[in-house]
Amino acid sequence: MSHTATAPAPETAGSHRGPAKGSGVNFTRVLKSEWIKVTTVPSTVIMLSITVVVMVGLAALFAWQTTILFDLQSDPEVAAQVQGAPDATSIVSTIPGSGLIFGQLLMGSLAVVLIASEWGTGMIRSTMVAVPKRIPALLAKQLVFAVIAFILGAGSAFVGYLVAQPILAPSDLAFGLDTDGVLLHIINTGSVLALVAIIAMSIGTLLRNTAGGVVTTIGLLFVLPILVATLLAGIADWIPDAARFLPSSAGEQMVAITIAEDALNQWQGALVLGGWALVLLVISVAVTKKRDV
């Protein structure tokens, strides 16, 4: 077997001129490597498929539930139906992204798993030996998964929109893509998932541990808002006010159709959630650059 080991590109002593031009590491190549990594672990692909099914399924379920409620309310009097219709539009408009909470839960967890499992399995050492500058490897992984999360989120919302229409049509609730705010709602369902994925992956990078990362992410996204709303709200006046800037609230505003007074609008929500993602990303990258792996 040994003879084969010496076969490729035999070099004589001292003739090594360094790597040929164009054979080094660049960001496009690292992106490709990270793409291969995401697509070659079967459980990742399964998780992504489940997310799509759940998000589309919830949109259909929510559409069906809306028709039932609407039919119950409108049956007794024809007049109420005429009056109720405009209100219904704003309710049904959020049906495409009704799986967003579950989407965040699944994609957030998956983002943590993708990076923390590299530490768990030791893969991170192979990654960092191949890309010793480290930052390109982390950014490439973040970018690849954020794009996947965006496409998956926006795609699921769009399919959710399509699936909902025939369910809504018998109740005269079907709506067009040109309805106010619907297109932005669908696109931002993807944007929220992408930003949440970045937040979760940064947490996973900092903690280097799957269980800890998932718990922390869920705590930040789902438990903290409840704590703030129930336990902490009474402590000081500014707390409910500051709660608007939690990732979960900012994300909700990004996909909202109608904006309440005093609330952030879609773009402000995007700015806040984007801020969270950026800060955590910068911290996680800076820490990983310095740390022993």
Binding site: R29, V30, S33, I36, K37, G122, S126
Partner: peptide
């Protein structure tokens, strides 16, 4: 130093991709 759920071939492919 390898992800346990990935095949050897895909692991090497991912490593190779970083350097083209």
């Amino acid at each position: 130093a390898v992800h346990t759920k990935r095949s050897a071939y895909n692991h090497l492919r991912a490593m190779a991709a970083t350097h083209g």
